[in-house]
């Protein structure tokens, strides 16, 4: 474990808490159309379920197991909230990204490019590829609606920063322990790359108090 990865995991936690806070607030100000993509949240739940299949078999540390359990539980809870509890504030007409394409693409690639052709390894590889593109329905929704509530932008900032810091962690680990993992490196670079234009708008507008609006 290194500082970069620890902060990255904490940013990941923060993003989930921001989302839960926003959904709690939306509930209290019911009627405001939620700008959160259900598809992205469902993809994240799939990512965690397919990545942590070794939750009970491979104990690394209390931290590792606790975080895995939290990520699985929170992502399923969010999907539950969006699907059942807050169904009214979801508008499927805005969530039109073809998620089956990214699921199919990640599955196909995981079957071809992986470290071992075993169920667990292919599922893990699938979760890495899927996580890289899971944010697309959410970003697609932002381009459709053209604007986002400030709390949604903070959610995306935390989420984008988490994987960006993992890239720094991988550079550090390559430098200190010659750690090489092409699958996560390339997927992580793609994942962070998808946030670049969002980060640009976030730093130039939202942090200056302006509304998040796409040009």
């Amino acid at each position: 474990m290194n500082l970069f990865r620890l902060v990255a995991d904490l940013m990941h936690l923060v993003s989930i808490f921001i989302l839960l806070l926003k959904m709690q607030k939306t509930r209290s100000v019911a009627g405001r159309c939620s700008r959160i993509s259900f598809k992205t949240q469902a993809l994240y739940a799939t990512v965690f379920l397919t990545r942590y299949t070794d939750l009970f078999a491979n104990f690394q540390s209390l931290y590792n197991t606790t975080m895995k359990v939290f990520f699985i539980a929170s992502s399923l809870y969010i999907v539950f909230l969006m699907k059942f509890k807050f169904k009214a504030t979801n508008d499927p007409r805005l969530d039109t990204f073809k998620a089956q394409y990214v699921v199919g693409g990640a599955a196909a690639l995981a079957l071809i490019v992986n470290y071992a052709f075993t169920v667990q390894e292919v599922l893990w590889t699938f979760s890495i590829y899927l996580e890289a593109v899971a944010i697309l329905p959410q970003l697609f929704m932002l381009t459709k609606t053209g604007e986002a509530e400030v709390i949604t932008t903070h959610y995306l900032f935390a989420l984008g920063t988490y994987r960006g810091l993992y890239l720094v962690n991988w550079i550090y680990r390559y430098w200190t322990e010659y750690y090489v993992d092409w699958i996560v490196w390339i997927a992580g670079a793609v994942q962070t790359g998808l946030y670049c234009d969002f980060f640009y708008i976030y730093f130039t507008k939202v942090l200056k108090g302006a509304k998040f609006e796409l040009p």
Binding site: H12, M67, V113, W124, V180, D181, W182, I183
Partner: peptide
């Protein structure tokens, strides 16, 4: 692909 994943990363 040659290589192995890190078992301790989330």
């Amino acid at each position: 692909l040659a290589g192995a994943r890190s078992k301790d990363e989330l």
